[in-house]
Simulated scan of single mutants.
Amino acid sequence: MSGPSEEPSRSAHDEALTARAGGRTVLDLDYRPMFWDSPAAATAQVQKVLGQVTVAVGNREECEVAAGETDPDRAAEALLDAGVRLAVVKRGADGVLARTRTERVVSPPIPATPCNGLGAVDSFGGSLAHGLLAGWPLETAFARANAAGAIVASRPECLPAGGHRLVDTGDEEIDSVKHSGVPVVADARETLRELTVLLRGYRVPAAYRAEYTRAEAEWTARVDTAFRGTPIPDGLLSQSAVIGLVNELSDAQDVVVCAAGSMPGDLHELWRVRRRRATTSSTATAAWATRSRVGSGCGWPARTGTCSCWSATGRT
């Protein structure tokens, strides 16, 4: 629920939800105080949205902001009264409570040794969405969602500990503080130019280069499989197959700007860069994607740019 905290993101979300009317929509309550003037301001926006979604997911604090209740059962009841069909209350070490008007499911936590919690919530949400779309019983869907979160929480970060430091660069402070890295508020292009000078002549050890080559070949094979894709139940292409087609049909110098839920993450993972200077840019909302496309055009007028925004009704 960070998106509706201010314009133009708020209007973009309103339009997307209006277009989505009648479809299955999951709302992650995800209350982040730094984005809101007050809890009351967040409550007012959440209350407007709850009647437009079918599933709401949040922890006790987020449920209090959304529905005024911290007790899991009362919070679930309040969310159902607000219009959702499935209310999900995450209770930490007590597991997850899920309620509809006719069903109540408590899914116990999965014991795991925590290593790095980054992404565990996203993993839970992705697995839950898959289970709901697949038509699994709630008990099965939440058991597997809990397992997915536990698996991610028990794994190390993408960068191994010891001698490695992640530096996050962004032109705004909020974008530069991620993944427990060293935040650097700076223009990304200028940062890369300076790093290019500083790292000129550096070469990684031969053993690391060999390991990278092996891993790259394995990943290429996996991307090939993803790009071929499997049609989803309604007959449409899968998201990975769409990315593969855009990748194949675009030119090496094209700019692709994407804003659509999980697509930015898949784009960064699957996109094959044919020129090492090429980049992909992703933002959180359709409004920002359009602004990014305009910005890329101003920065390099001779380069062709494509802005793809996806909603419940398809490409816009």
Rank of each mutant, 00 (worst) to 15 (best):
V223W: 04
D224C: 00
T225R: 01
A226D: 07
F227L: 05
F227W: 08
R228I: 03
R228H: 03
R228T: 04
G229C: 05
G229E: 11
T230H: 06
P231V: 06
I232G: 13
I232A: 13
P233I: 12
D234I: 13
D234F: 13
G235D: 09
G235S: 10
G235V: 13
G235F: 11
L236C: 12
L237G: 04
S238F: 12
S238W: 11
S238D: 13
S238M: 11
Q239S: 15
Q239G: 14
S240F: 13
S240L: 14
A241S: 12
A241N: 11
A241H: 09
V242Y: 11
V242D: 08
I243R: 10
G244H: 07
G244V: 08
L245D: 02
L245W: 00
V246T: 01
V246F: 02
E248M: 00
E248D: 03
L249S: 00
S250D: 01
D251G: 03
D251I: 00
D251V: 00
Q253M: 02
V255E: 02
V257K: 00
C258L: 09
C258T: 09
C258G: 08
A259Y: 13
A259I: 12
A260N: 13
G261K: 15
S262C: 13
S262F: 15
S262N: 15
M263T: 15
M263Y: 15
P264C: 15
P264I: 14
G265D: 14
G265H: 15
G265E: 15
D266Q: 10
D266K: 08
D266L: 12
L267G: 04
H268V: 09
H268A: 08
H268I: 08
E269R: 09
L270H: 06
L270V: 08
W271P: 05
R272Y: 07
V273C: 10
R274Q: 13
R274A: 13
R274V: 13
R275K: 10
R276C: 08
R276A: 14
R276I: 11
R276L: 10
R276Y: 12
A278R: 05
T280Q: 03
T280L: 05
T280N: 03
S281V: 07
S281E: 08
S281G: 04
S282Y: 08
S282C: 12
T283R: 12
A284G: 12
A284V: 11
T285I: 10
A286F: 10
A286H: 09
W288Q: 11
A289K: 05
A289Y: 05
A289H: 04
T290F: 04
R291N: 08
R291Y: 08
S292I: 06
R293M: 03
R293H: 01
R293N: 02
